[in-house]
């Protein structure tokens, strides 16, 4: 029962991921795609969490945290790039 519910959740999650993929492919702007990527990251966090419950393993919590961190960093980097065309700024450009 529990297992069935969890697998059901995972399937739901997969469907969300596919929906996000639709957005990622479709665009139309780069911002949409970055947004989709961000959402994808968060969905994967959920996925890992559910999977941990499913196999009752505590081994993946690091992954959860790290996806959170890196998805954040990735999003910021993309946002920076979209906004300014530069990822790392310099105060005194040559």
């Amino acid at each position: 029962m529990i297992k069935g519910m969890l697998i059901g959740s995972l399937i739901f999650l997969t469907l969300s991921i596919l929906a996000i993929m639709y957005r990622l492919v479709k665009g139309p702007t780069a911002s949409d795609r970055v947004q989709a990527l961000d959402a994808l990251g968060i969905n994967i966090i959920s996925g890992v969490a559910i999977f941990s419950v499913l196999i009752r393993s505590t081994g993946f919590f690091e992954v959860i945290l790290l996806i959170g961190i890196l998805s954040f960093i990735g999003t910021i980097a993309f946002a920076r790039y979209l906004e300014r065309g530069v990822v790392i700024e310099r105060k005194h450009p040559k």
């Binding site: 990622l24 795609r33 989709a36 990527l37």
Partner: peptide, 8 residues
Amino acid sequence: IAVGALGF
């Protein structure tokens, strides 16, 4: 972005 998604 797509490669990034692939990586994820």
